[in-house]
Amino acid sequence: MAEFKGTREAFAAAMLDMAAINDKVMVISPDSLKAMRAVEFGEKYPDRYVECGIAEQCAVDVGAGLASAGMMPFIGTYCGFLTMRACEQMRTFVGYTNLPVKFVGVNAGILGGEREGVTHQFYEDLSILSSIPNFTLLTPADPAQCYHAVKMAAEIDGPVYVRAGSGREVDVYEKDAPFSPDGITVWKEYGNDAVLFSNGFVLDRVLAAADILKEQGILVTAADINILYGKDPSKILEVMSRSEQLVTVEDHNINGGLGSYISRLACENKPAKVKRIALTDFGESGPAKILADKYGYAPEDIAKTVKEALKK
């Protein structure tokens, strides 16, 4: 198993591994081959790499055309340019048609966008796609998980979106740990004072918060949710049922992502208090770690929010 510097390198490695055994796999680039670390793929498989230029709507349309003719295109670029600029193409020509077009959206979240600033950091992708039928939303927590998520995307029928970052992701999982088909991996089982659900590249911070809380006598369960709005949430529901206080942590806008998903599951199945830690405003440029700390994702701040929620 290769080790990856970040989720983009993980994407590129997964594509090369798949292309070696599957001649339907293609890479579609809206001038993103370099950004996606997929230059080697383009050189090795020129017939299976389509360059669209800086034109995301076109890239999605080209992907739909390829998929309708039996190919399996992967379109990788900045996630906001896909889910916002090419939103209608993703909805009408991939979602509605239910074609096997796979998307890998990078620079997701404030951590993912970091120094680029607001134009290149995106926290709306999941809420947009969660309202389009047929999409499966995979949200790996680190580079190794991204590798497995990209490979899983090829196994799933229909459209798939994989949320990726910019190389600032912290390794948490063992390299060969599979991407959980249950949509959840429980990491800490200190107790049931609260259940903390993490989504994406804030997992290391959520686990650190669980340890801080433990030192303070608050015993929580902490889990990574890696599939949003999946078809079978039964394992997630089982973990949710352990506590009456749930806390969600996601590097995404507060509407439409993990917090909304867990709130819905709680409302529809077993009512519980849900405290959502997420973004409520635009970000700014800055170093990834400091930026994430400033916007509420410091482990100490996550722990503090959990404590305050338990007091109410």
């Binding site: 293609m26 709507q57 349309d61 055309g65 390829l66 309708s68």
Partner: peptide, 15 residues
């Protein structure tokens, strides 16, 4: 969208 989708189909034929 027809031209771009058509380009995808045509690219599939080539591939």
């Amino acid at each position: 969208n027809g031209i771009a989708i058509g380009a995808g189909m045509a690219a599939a034929a080539k591939a």
